[in-house]
Design a protein around this nucleic acid. Sequence first.
DNA 1: GGTAGACCTGGACGC
DNA 2: GCGTCCAGGTCTACC
Length: 336
Amino acid sequence: MPSFALKPPSDYALARDVCSYGYFLLAPNRWNVKEQSLARGLVLGKELVGVVISQPGARGSPLRIQLDRTLTSPLRALAEAQLRRMLRLDEDESHVRAFHKVDPRWKRKGRARLFRSPTLFEDVLKTVTSCNVTWPGTVQMNRRLCEVVGRATRSGLHTFPTPQALARTRPQTLRARCRVGYRDLRIIELARLFAARSPEIRIIEDPATPDELLHQTLLSLPGVGPYAAANIMQLLGRYSRLPLDTESVRHGRTVLGFTGNSKQVMRRVHEHFTPFQDQAFRSYWFEMWEHYEKLQGPAHTWERDTTGTMFTAAQLKKLAAAAGHTTPKQPARARK
DNA sequence: GGTAGACCTGGACGC
DNA sequence: GCGTCCAGGTCTACC
C-alpha cells in the first residue's frame, strides 16, 4: 500500500487533536478506536483517494498517511494541503502557546487544535446540517449525503460530496434519500455559490477579510444564522465569537451554575468568556468538551456508529444526573 | 429591533 | 408497534 509521512508540529498528538471536535464522528470520517487512526476519502480535482492517517510514534512524531492508490506529485500536493487543513497542522507551537497564555487551563494536556474538514465547503455543510436537529440527525444526514451524492474510493471509503455534485442534485433526492428535510434548497443554493466561486465565497475564503465583514458575509449565506456564522468562523480559525445554542445554555446551567431563563443564561455565558477575547471559542469549547469526556470517557474511545444518540438532550441529562451534576428542570421547549 | 410561528426529522415516551 | 410530543437554529411575516 503506498504511503508517505507528514511532519506535524512538535506537540502534535493525533488522537487528542483529531478527537477534539464532533466532526471527527461525521461521515466520511471514520475514527478507528482500536487502531487510533482516521480514514476517509478525499477528492483531488477529478480524482479520488482513500487515506488512513496514523501516528505510530510518540507526540510530535511523523504522521503516516496510507493511500489506496498511487498519486502523482501534483495530486499528492493536493492531498497534503487538504490533510494539513483538516488536522490544523498549520497551527504550530506558537499558535498553541498564544492560546495557553490566555487560558493556561489547557496547557498541561496541550489542548488547542480543533479538528475540521479538508475543505471549507464540507465545514459549511456540516454546520448547516447540525442546525435545528439533534446530533443523531446530523450523523444521519452526513452519512447519507456521502453515500448518495459522495463517491467511493478503490478501498470503499467515501468522499464528501463536491459543490458541483450537490449543485446538480435534485431537492427531492436530498429530502427523500438524504433526509435533510427543509434544508434541501438551502444546501443546493450553497453548493451553487461554492461551485461558481461567487464573490461571497471569495470574501469568506480570504484570510485578510476582517472578522466583522466575514461575519456579515456568512450571515448572507442561505441556511446560515448567528450560530452557524460563529461556528464557521471558528472553523476558519477566528476564535473570537461564540456559537451560542441550547448546548451553551445547558453548559451555563449545569457546569457554570447560571440561573434564569435561556436568554439570560446565554448572555451570562457570553459575558463569562468575553475576557478570553480572540481565544474565547477555544476556552468555551474545551470546557464543554471536558464535560462531555467526564460523562462519556475520553473522546478517542468514542465509536462513530454507537455515539449517535450520545449527545441528545435526554441522554446528557441522564448522564449528568448519574455523574452528580444538578440539572434544573428546563422549560418544555428551550427559548432562544 | 424584537418576536411568533413554520419548517422537518428522529428519538423518547406512553399506551 | 403505533401515535404523539419534543428538540433543534433559521427564516419570514408582522408589530
